[in-house]
Design a protein around this nucleic acid. Structure first.
Lengths: 188, 188, 188, 188
DNA sequence: AATGAATGAGATTTCATTCAT
DNA sequence: AATGAATGAAATCTCATTCAT
């Protein structure tokens, strides 16, 4: 049996931190390896290159976020409760693991190309929920448009907190954001 | 009278196009010069360095967007009409000059550091409008939070169109987005 | 009795294939190990390093080729018969074990330095044969020059087949090449 | 007007020398730049990468060799005279510009892939000559096979000189090689 | 015994910027 | 004035080899 990987997790942690702090392009392999306490070459045993590392991190954390949302939404029956639960789940994540949330948020546009096209995104989850609710007659409108509105409302609030335009912690906005979301949805 | 500079505009156009397509970090001086049909050194005649070019472009276009919004908002008295005018102004810009809109939208996070901190942003404009409306008793709430919600709702719709999750043109969403914005604001 | 090594043969086969396809310098240890279905470290259990593997492969296969030639030449008395037998032996090898032939052929220049200088080469065998024949008065000329001519004539035909300039199989050229060789030698 | 290129020719000369001495794989960009007295980056203004430099050098010198052969062949009417002129032209090149000849000779197999498929090779020239001579009834046989035989005979003699198996200068072999070539061709 | 992780050294290549003409 | 050549520094990545389990 070969020795167990000792650099993999430190590399992931270092990369996440530095990508959030300095941006993906602003962070070099050197930086990551130094912070992880290993050689630069070690990175290449675990990921084909820097881009693959970024994509793997993004997919991993995006999937985590998506799962949280799915779990939260499935835990409630009524639309308002679903929205509140989903919002709470994400905003708590923001407070508990700010790096994960920020990474997913900040990196998304840099990756459009190199992602698998069949990756299920949080947007898909929200859009489907709204399609269901429309089918049930609870709300009206175009599912994708409602999803865009709700997600934007929800995310930009987090960005305002991120850039200091609104004071933290994030969780304090669960209630007011949920209310605004429900007004947008204009549910019966 | 001095003859007009020949390389300046082509360089700006090329830079805008390439920054949107490949990102700022992904675009090199050689790329820009080649697309502009001039030499690499020419760029340094007009801007101190690449960073200055990026900042100048961003400030110019952001200012344009902000001015459009200010003009549109000032052209109307009532809150609903203001929102509609501002939304229409921006979404028309999206359809007419998609590069400008995308540049301002996509490049913002890449630039957080290297920008003057006193730059007046569209967010400031919106936040002030809401502060005024609150002072007038037309709406209630925290101005920055309302601004975050409205801007997010408005922008994410554009991002959905950008990535093909919603069909274009952008201008078709002026009315429904305005309606959702007004529901968020819950104006009297 | 010790159990037989399990990785040795797969490594040799994989190395041979990859060296022929990609060149010695273009083939890495990881490539070889992956193709052989074993670990990279396994290679170092059987050879001191990559260079030693290359040299061992080359010497083994070159010796095989040389032995075939020696055996074939020794099996006949008359010069024409010798040439035909040697040619047939090699061209049959080409058809039966194309990798071996190509390896010896293509890799030789890549290796000039790292080989033992006292390695007996096919060229030496041919040169000696011609020296004998000259001593016997059957042919005239400079042995090394005749060897160069005959070997070149013989090898370049194989290279033409290798690159598709002449159709295979190689064995179809035994007779015409032998005839040309005999005309070059101008034997009595 | 920009400054004239000062590094291009020194880079070509250095590359040719080092490739012949140490092999293409054994020669690094560093080596080349140091020998040329310029920076490593200078190379990339003139060629896209190392491979492109190798290919450009090969094509340039191969074309030169091919032109010499074509000129020599065209300068004579009779087959024997053509062969002698072609052989003399190449062997003189070997003596005068040994680097060029060795480079073309040693590098050929490393490049099979990255070459334009429509590159006219010396082999094509020889094959066509023999096809013509066959059409004229001067010789008989398969043009490509005769070309392989003649080229191999001719080249391997040079390789023997290159590796010290035959004494130089190369030009001393013009006459005996031409005679052997004519015996191979068995011309009327 | 055998693995796959880890590494140091070095390779190629990119880049924004400066320079010489 | 304007070009394209040249550059130093750094980035990414590769490689043969050694190490720890």
């Amino acid at each position: 049996m070969a020795r167990p990987p000792k650099a993999r997790e430190p590399l992931k942690i270092a990369a996440l931190e530095l990508f959030v702090e300095q941006g993906v392009h602003g962070t070099g392999i050197r930086d990551i390896a130094k912070h992880a306490g290993c050689s630069e070459a070690a990175l290449y045993r675990h990921w084909a290159n820097k881009e693959a590392l970024v994509a793997a991190l993004y997919i991993e954390h995006l999937t985590e976020v998506r799962s949280r949302i799915e779990t939260a939404l499935a835990s409630q029956d009524e639309l308002g409760a679903k929205m509140q639960a989903g919002c709470a789940a994400c905003y708590l994540l923001y407070d508990e693991q700010p790096l994960v949330f920020r990474f997913v948020l900040l990196v998304q546009h840099e990756l459009a190309k190199s992602l698998p096209t069949d990756l299920r995104m949080p947007q898909d989850v929200i859009t489907e929920i709204f399609a269901q609710q429309i089918a049930l007659g609870r709300i009206t409108g175009e599912p994708a448009l409602l999803a865009a509105a709700v997600i934007g409302l929800f995310l930009e609030t987090a960005i305002f907190v991120l850039y200091g335009r609104l004071p933290g912690p994030m969780s304090r906005y669960v209630e007011p954001v949920t209310k605004m979301v429900m007004r947008v949805l204009d549910a019966k």
